[in-house]
Amino acid sequence: MELHINGESRTANADPSMPLLWVLRDELNLTGTKFGCGIAACGACTVHVNGQAVRSCVMPVSAVAHQKIRTIESLGTAEKPHPLQAAWIAEQVPQCGYCQSGMLMAAAALLDKTPNPSDAEIDAAMTNLCRCGTYQRVRAAIHRAAAQMKKGGAA
């Protein structure tokens, strides 16, 4: 099966009903996207499909063939971080860090659509669960990144 992931064409030898999450993690070794619940309840597996935040643990890979898939691995790098990643470091958001890939991908999809979100818009978009309770820093970091992107342009 032909997949478009992070700007590259990748061939996955996957069962069509296999959720995208497992194709990414176990077939393609893109382990930045995490397994948390398997029922789209926690958001640890959030990736972008055509710019939309989706929960890859319940998304059959056949449904996203030929769509543009983006994972945490292409959000930014240590040398060239996405403004959200820079904000995440500035606000010292992660603790254990396990849910943070999903958090960042959900936040990136939010800022793509809503460059300057209100607290209510953040509440509505950020339904990812974090057991370490990093929420208030997530909120602060989204506001910080939004301000930065307004000032300095997009990533």
């Binding site: 930045g32 994972t71 992660p94």
Partner: peptide, 19 residues
């Protein structure tokens, strides 16, 4: 002091047991 484990946790590079 900024935590040294945070940069790898915002790029998906940190290695958990499942990774």
């Amino acid at each position: 002091t900024a935590r040294t484990d945070i940069p790898s946790k915002v790029t998906g590079q940190a290695q958990f047991g499942l990774d």
